[in-house]
Write a protein that binds this DNA or RNA. Structure first.
Length: 335
DNA sequence: TTCCAGTCAATATG
DNA sequence: CATATTGACTGGAA
């Protein structure tokens, strides 16, 4: 009983196939998402996630041990997601809400960049140029209240995109870690209490590229008792935000527990971006599936899309205001 | 209930 | 070390 899956989605995430020769399945090279903005010399084609329909997707489960969720691949051979939505529906029709900023592709491009690991890695161009964030960017005045640009009318709750869900999010595979760190992805979601990785992280050199992200965060993550804690556990406490900033910083901060920010693995990031590119607002079911397949929490996935939507917009506005033509360069002109 | 804007703070990068 | 990036959290609104 597999509801229609989004073919586009599946094809969407193609390109990563090469990572796993063993699984080498003819991926639909038809549309590797990112190619458009891929930086020269770096086709992301090689670094993509493969969400092909009906592909065995053991990788994730293997590399990203879901804390409590079983990432059963929705596909052949793999059991249906346990609680899950075998029948995902809700994937917006591909290309549905394309409210991407013209430059958004840069984002994808970045996401698609090959792992920096040892390879010639192009300097990752800043995606959301000007990345603003909470920290007042020295060069960037606080963004004025964003008034949604006409061009990107966010269909509030567009009733969900009646789309199909890519059964896709299934065969996500971790690119071969060039450095030889197999299964770094696992770090993305360290099993609760997986302190073991701490050592690894410690050993790893600090600056690793996205590809290494997983490792990068491990150290702290482990320290905090596992990323699993993220989200729920940390709810509130460590996150001094908005109004809560007043609270004493040291107070609820469980002493030694420094909250570590989750850093998506290359695979996760790419997959998410790829999906985002197709569907800015995946349905809940879809998000759940994605989360399961990627070994992330639903909140995380949800946050990702939320941030992506917002940031892609900001980026866009930014470009516009900068006088940049919307089709501006994928790279941040400013700065 | 979900989404968003505003923010924070951990990370990544130069 | 300074700055940029980005995942996450909060309160409020729809």
């Amino acid at each position: 009983a597999r509801p229609a899956m989004v073919p586009s989605m599946a094809s969407l995430l193609d390109g990563a196939a090469e990572y796993r020769p063993e699984l080498s399945i003819p991926l639909h090279h038809a549309m590797s998402v990112p190619c458009e903005a891929s930086p020269p010399g770096m086709g992301m084609s090689g670094t993509y996630t493969t969400l092909t329909p009906l592909q065995p997707l053991p990788p994730i489960s293997a590399e990203v041990p879901p804390v409590g969720q079983s990432l059963s691949p929705l596909g052949n051979g793999l059991g249906p997601l346990p609680g899950a939505q075998q029948g995902l529906h809700g994937y917006g029709p591909p290309g549905h809400d394309k409210m991407l900023s013209p430059n958004f592709e840069a984002m994808l491009a970045r996401a698609e960049q090959p792992l920096p690991r040892g390879l010639a890695t192009p300097p990752a161009p800043p995606l959301f140029c000007g990345g603003r964030g909470g920290q007042r960017p020295p060069h960037r005045p606080p963004l004025p209240p964003l008034h949604r640009p006409p061009a990107a009318p966010t269909p509030r709750r567009s009733g969900a995109h009646p789309g199909e869900l890519p059964r896709a999010v299934r065969a996500v595979r971790e690119p071969p870690q060039r450095g030889g760190c197999p299964g770094v992805a696992a770090a993305a979601r360290p099993p609760v209490g997986s302190a073991g990785r701490a050592g690894l992280a410690a050993a790893s050199p600090p600056r690793c590229g996205y590809g290494d992200t997983a490792l990068t965060r491990v150290g702290r993550t482990a320290a905090r008792g596992g990323a699993g804690a993220r989200g729920s556990a940390l709810t509130g406490e460590m996150r001094g935000s908005c109004k809560r900033k007043e609270q004493e910083p040291s107070k609820e901060r469980n002493n030694s527990q420094k909250k570590s920010r989750l850093v998506f693995t290359d695979l996760q990031r790419r997959t998410l971006f790829a999906i985002f590119k197709e569907n800015k607002r995946p349905s809940k079911e879809m998000q759940m599936t994605i989360s399961q397949q990627l070994g992330l929490e639903l909140n995380t996935v949800s946050n990702f899309f939320m941030n992506a939507r917002r940031r892609s917009l900001e980026k866009w506005q930014d470009d516009l205001s900068s006088g940049g033509s919307s089709s501006a360069p994928s790279t941040c002109p400013k700065a």
